[in-house]
Write a protein that binds this DNA or RNA. Structure first.
Lengths: 244, 244
DNA sequence: GACGAAACTTTTGTATACAATAAGCCCGCC
DNA sequence: GGCGGGCTTATTGTATACAAAAGTTTCGTC
């Protein structure tokens, strides 16, 4: 069958020599899912992963548990773990949740951000623009992700920050999944720099508005029409016998 | 040392005969933490738990991982898992986060709640009142928890619902932890029934306001004065060598 | 040729053994 | 008597073996 992905997995970075733990597996699988190298529904048997990474099932299992708690994979009892395929409905809900949480985070952040993190954010924004202009989509995604990750990290409210980290990952996954066919990249010019301006100026409500607009714009770039529910249909009829 | 808690653990319910998995361990430990039978800082060695529940370390480890992801315990590498002691700052942040999320959930819920779940909510509210009146604090907590749990479950937005479930647990833990000394119970008369009225009437913003007031009231019943930081001090100086 | 059952294979669940690390302890030294 | 080094012990990290369950194939029957 589809036995080609281990080579891709290994290509993700040198694996064999370094001391590798469950953390590395989590990072690499997460990244591969994000980059669509591991499409939804892909089976991830424990022994195979263990062979690829040169560790035993124990550590693989721990990694899979973590990935499941991050909503990257689905883990049902007595069944092989599979890359998750969030439904269209869940996609909408994830965006709604992120609007709420990230809006609040940037509102809290407005005007309270020291110069150093602000510079780091600006650098990511610049990096994203440049990556977009030279057509390097993976790099652009990386910069965008890092930017939002930084926002989460610097959230004055760490509980909300942790939630935002989770939501950023989940939205990124569904963006990769539901991106409109012809679209080269889900990029909205100026959104990030506008946000940073308002953050620096200390305008909390403007920053919240920026986040809302940004996420609305992103969501609009997706193909979430229910008539095109082939993905859902396929994953539910073909693979998932029950869904509570 | 403190080897008495396994008996308490077992008293939590019949354990030996039934088929017990990691889920049961998670439930029982969570409950014990909630009821303050397992105070913060309590060590939870894997072998001991395994002996108590009659399972091997494998399943205990899985249970501990779950508990850590629920923020019930702390799991640092090469160290025994311990019951978590959220700081005062984290307590405030948890309340803030819950205000945001639960407020949104009830706003979404207002007017869209069918009769059946509404009745279930009302029953929990009544149960809470009656438990309070007869001075049965554990039962009162149980009813209150179930009520908020039901709100989370019926959230139209399941992503927010799952987040709320987590936040309800965490706030309950810190309430138990920081409850003012003399206080018999953290109960605010009428709050829940008022919320239900507004939910049924479909007044989203009133419901959101009810949640805000309720959580503000609850937080006010806690002793979060930084001068009384003995709990933090004790747990940090006495047990935790490093804190990232 | 289609259907169904039984063996067979694959894969996960659990227990256990061994290695590595951290904590506690004792003893010698200053 | 206090302090530090090394030893002992307790506990977690990892690998592996076996059991149970799910999935797959094959074969016989209708």
């Amino acid at each position: 069958m589809n036995n080609a992905w281990h080579t891709e997995m290994l290509a993700e970075g040198r694996v064999s020599d370094r001391r590798i733990g469950d953390r590395d597996i989590v990072d690499k699988v997460r990244r591969a899912v994000l980059m669509q190298r591991l499409p939804p529904g892909t089976k991830l048997p424990e022994v195979t992963l263990g062979e690829v990474f040169g560790v035993s099932r124990s550590v693989v299992r721990k990694a899979l548990t973590r990935l499941a708690s991050e909503h990257v994979i689905d883990q049902r009892p007595n069944q092989v773990a599979r890359v998750r395929a969030p439904s269209i409905e869940e996609t909408r809900e994830t965006f709604d949740a992120r609007r709420l949480v990230e809006g609040e985070v940037v509102a809290l952040l407005a005007g309270r951000l020291p110069a150093e993190p602000l510079a780091a954010l600006a650098e990511q924004a610049r990096g994203e623009v440049s990556a977009f202009e030279r057509g390097d989509e993976p790099a652009r995604i990386e910069h965008s992700l890092t930017l939002h990750h930084l926002l989460a990290e610097h959230s004055p409210n760490r509980v909300l920050g942790a939630m935002l980290t989770d939501l950023v990952l989940r939205t990124s996954i569904v963006i990769a999944l539901y991106k409109r066919a012809g679209l080269a990249s889900c990029y909205l010019e100026g959104d990030h720099s506008r946000l940073l301006t308002h953050l620096e100026a200390g305008d909390a409500e403007a920053a919240r508005g920026d986040i809302h607009d940004h996420l609305n714009g992103l969501e609009a770039l997706l193909d979430l029409s229910p008539r095109e529910a082939r993905i859902d249909l396929k994953s539910i009829l073909g693979r998932a016998p029950e869904q509570a």
